[in-house]
Design a protein around this nucleic acid. Structure first.
Length: 112
RNA sequence: GACGCAGAACAGGUGAUCGCGGCUGUCGCAAGACAGGUGAGGAAAGUCCGGGCUUCGCAGGGCAGGAUGCCGGAUAACGUCCGGUGGAGGUGACUCCCAGGCCAGUGCAACAGAAAAUUACCGCUUCGGCCACCGGCCGGAGUAAGGGUGAAAAGGUGGUGUAAGAGACCACCGGCCGUAUGGUAACAUGCGGGCCGUGUAAACCCCAUCCGAAGCAAGACCAAGCAGAAGGGUUAAGGUCUGCCCGACCGUCCUUCAGGUGGGUCGCUUGAUGCGGCCGGUAACGGUCGCACUAGAUAGAUGAUCACCCCGGAGCGCAAGCUCUUAGACAUAACCCGGCUUAUCGUUCUGCCGAACAC
RNA sequence: AGGGCUAUAGCCAAAUGGUAAGGCAGCGGAUUCUGAUUCCGUCAUUUGGAGGUUCGAGUCCUCCUAGCCCUG
């Protein structure tokens, strides 16, 4: 991914939760915060309640793959945190794509 | 043939496009770019055992504690595996079993029952006395066959015997002791004696064997950075060995508050390794020869889309086949091995069984 | 990585291997003109699941399943 790094430290997640804007759908909750750089940072959080290791890993990959394919459509300079809800365990690639577009439009971070 | 039993292997495949982590090569001061090749499992899981490895005051002894528990073997070791013995199940192939010791000691056995371990309620027999028609009552002695209770009642069944009975005696069965034979042993079989305090050690416990502790966030090195203060103990207290004691070593240690870092390299994958042949062994396994190198991430790399084949499901059809649908089960390495346990859609192969079913 | 705890009626929970206490709630009844209070009665067929030891397991043993906690 050209414009994007990943969020790693718990502290960065906490800052995003505290100060960022949030929007939710059936599958995911998204937090967005401007980070003051020209690059995006994305963090994906999948809790144990969603499923076992296989399921959690798959959800993470689906979200990351979708973001990668749609990367150019997003505004830059953002910290994005995506939290999976239990319904995401059985979601397909297309369903994840729709959910992410819906959340992006709701937070006004998609380029027209 | 189907069903069944045992064992082994596999865990969708191929192609195209986009994408990720190591490795190698080329270019580049560097960041990085390009190319090639490589990249999860039978359980990677649960973390239930065992070992390697590393560190610790690396020495040592005892108690406590824990684990194992028929016999023999395999192994680095094991609670694992293999072969036997005994018991249980099945027609059978075969499968299952924490299977030492209540004649060392202590404890427990509710309710019922006379009695739950040196028992006698209802009974049975006999002797004496009294009342006296058959017979009954009281007392003494013998006895444990029968009844009833219970999960379990002092060997069982049948007979001899007797006043009534009793392993008192006899036959068979069971158990114990001794002995002989076979077997490395557990044990089996035979002979003789002879009938003896029930069950529970997944109750405490006894006996035999084994166990130092912690864990790759172990541990080693490099770089960067900071600031100390207060209180307490101080020759018997402390020093990462879970507890206690002895012994030996060190010379300051502990608590609270405050401050700094939270980066990198190694450990890190060549190993009790895998595959194949031959030899030894009933087997587990061992020896030897040849070939192979097959993930090493560090918030943690394998995914997505499309097409075809295969598999599963549904419909049509005598069948061949066609159409539609679904992308599959369980489950993601984190120092490494040997096991165990648990989850799992299915497919294939090998050997075996014969009660019932079909031909 | 290492270690510990819990699971019993809708909720809170007790029980030495021997009849699954008790309270709250619910339901039915009594008392009252009606309601509250009070009193009586009722409510576990699977003690988280599977197997074993035992004459007999909530309890003892083994293996699982959930949930929670501690240390680094």
């Amino acid at each position: 991914m050209i414009f994007t790094e990943s969020l790693r430290k718990n502290q960065q997640f906490q800052i995003c939760y505290k100060n960022g804007k949030s929007y939710g759908s059936k599958l995911f909750v998204m937090y967005v915060l401007e980070n003051g750089t020209d690059r995006n940072r994305i963090g994906i959080s999948v809790s144990k309640k969603v499923g076992n290791s296989i399921v959690r890993h798959r959800v993470k990959r689906l979200v990351l793959e979708n973001y990668r394919l749609q990367e150019k459509m997003f505004n830059s300079g953002l910290d994005i945190v995506v939290i999976a809800r239990p319904g995401a365990a059985t979601a397909s690639f297309v369903e994840v794509e729709r959910a992410l577009m819906f959340l992006g439009n709701g937070l006004n971070i998609i380029k027209k």
